[in-house]
Structure formats: structure tokens, C-alpha cells
Computed example of a mutant assay.
Amino acid sequence: MSNHPSSVNTIAAFYGVNGKKLQRQYKDYLSEFSSWEQKTHADKWLLFPENIGKHLSIDETALSNGELYTIVTNKKAKGKKGAIVAMVKGTKADTIIKILSKIPVKKRNKVEEVTLDMAANMGLIVKRSFINAARVIDRFHVQKLASEAVQEIRIKHRWEAINKENEAIEYARSKGTAYIADTLNNGDSLKQLLARSRYLLFKNPSKWTHSQSKRAEILFSIYPDMKKAYDLAQNLSWIFEKTIDKTVGLTRLAYWYEKVRQSGFKSFSSIARTMSIYYQGILNYFNNRSTNASAESFNAKIKAFRAQFRGVRNIPFFLFRLSNIFA
């Protein structure tokens, strides 16, 4: 029996009983929630040591009103039954390490690899809880930083274009004339060009549409720095996509760092510094080309499950339902 509110209400209406009462009966008597062994601490933590495997992911998700939970999942389960290893309320490293320590050391020592983002707390959790595991920084988090750096430059130029257009409009008004924006070869104004270029800058040129190719050509001819920044971001993606050897990866990233230094872009220099701090975890990606995509996918499933229930009113019961499906 599903506990989706509309499903329960439909069944209740069919049998002529109160929908809320039927939902309460299901939760308290039919669902086995009342005898669930993890019920007493479910709102604080869940643990399923039997689901631990050699390759794990760690990430965070929001359940209700922005309340964050840290989730450890087994990659081998592919987001299905047996995926959840642990769910702990909050992101504080000490709290999560304490809960994970309840898993026998012998089991934790068998973990060979854990994928994570660049958050310091995540790194500490993995380091203390899974001492034999290689920490693998998710390549997509690194690439996202590069994409954001490109967008930062685009936005800077867009504000400049907006201010320039505003000045032109004000000047035209002072002269009692109508302002007519100059248009480029593709029909965009400069302000429109910068606004409409947002999505193409996330893509590889091979995935551009004809209009996007034309827009990019105009954009890069007017703003050479945008072309240079875009090429840096694409080159970083190429390194992760095409490199299968850790030593080669190290050499290519070193060459990329030098390009960043020569570019003079502050945002990219910050990315390079961040990568140098986490370089070992980033290089570990080339061992098995593991990413945190499974954790992100699982996070999306939780959000969809939450949406199905139109929010989370009773966190322990929600987690009970979640664990029945994914743990």
C-alpha cells in the first residue's frame, strides 16, 4: 500500500473512510514503522553496516526546511536497494565520524575508494572513518569552478554593456531623440549577445547549434578574453575526459596551471590554487575515473521522493520509507 497522500485519500474515499485517519492507521499499524529498530534515533542518524562496499560516495542533501543530512552510499548498488550505508543529520565532521565509528573497523578498513567534493569536512570524515580508502575529488566539482569563472567574466562584460546602454539612452533623452540600439550581424544587441551566450559557454563547440556557433563567433571577436577563458575551461574538461593515466594527468594539469598563470585571470588563479591544495584527491580520479555522479543521482531520487510526499512532515517516518526502498 502506497503512503502517497493522494493515493491514500483515493482509497479512503472509495471505501468511505477518513483519509487522514487511514494514513495514521497505515503509519502506526500497517507499515511496521512502530517496530522499526532505528526509529528512536532516525531523525538524527541511520546506519546500515551491511551495505558497506569497496567503493563509496559521500554527499549532503536537504530533507526539510533546508535541514542538511550527510549521506554515505555504496556505488555498487547503483542507487537501488542496498545503496544507503549511513545518513547523519548535519554536516559536522566530528558528529558524522562518531556515527560511522559504530560500523566495525574491519568493515570500514575494506573500503578502497570514496568520492567526495572539495569540502574540508567531507575530506576529514573520509580520512578518519575509512583509513585505507583513496579520497577521490569529484571532477565535475572542479569543472564547475572553471565554468563559473567563465560566467563571471561574461557577467562583468554584461554589466558594462548595460551601463553603457543606459548612458546612451540618457544621452539620447537629453537631446530629445529616440535611442536605437546597435545590432550585431546575428540581430542581437551587445547586451543581448552577452545574456544569450550564457548556455553556449557551458557546452563543447561540437554541441553548439548553428545560431550558437554564430553567436560564439561574434562574442569571441568582441571579447578575446572570453575566448581565452572559455578555452581554459574546455581544456580542463578535455584533460579529465581524455586522460587515463595518472602520471599523464599530472603532466597535463601542470601544463594547464602554467596556461592559467599566463592568462592573468584572478578567478582561474584561485581555481588553480584550490586544485593544488586538493591535487592528490584530484589525481586519484585517474585511478578508476570515479566520480560522485552516483551520489548526485541518489540525491535527486531523494528530492523526487520528497516531492512525491509534498514535503517532509514527519522526518522519522519519511526516512523509514526511504530506507525500505534504498537500504
Score class of each variant (00 low, 15 high):
R261I: 11
R215D: 01
V136S: 04
A86P: 01
N9H: 15
F48Y: 06
F317I: 04
Y15C: 06
K203E: 11
T73F: 08
S323N: 14
L201Q: 06
K127M: 03
D182P: 01
H141E: 03
N109F: 02
D231G: 09
H141N: 05
Q23P: 00
K78Q: 12
V248M: 13
N185R: 14
K127E: 05
L193P: 02
E152Y: 13
N287E: 12
A93R: 06
L116D: 02
L236A: 05
R139M: 05
G123T: 00
Y29G: 00
I302F: 08
K76C: 01
N324K: 15
G90V: 10
I302T: 01
K27V: 06
S7V: 12
F326E: 03
R139A: 03
K80L: 07
L283K: 09
N288Y: 15
E165Y: 12
L232S: 08
N314Y: 00
P49L: 04
I137M: 11
K39R: 15
R313T: 09
V260P: 04
N3P: 02
Q280A: 12
A178H: 13
A229N: 15
I325Q: 14
Q25T: 06
G311I: 07
V88Q: 06
A293L: 08
K110L: 06
Q143H: 15
I302R: 00
E67H: 09
Q23L: 11
K301T: 09
L124A: 14
K301V: 12
L47P: 04
D188T: 01
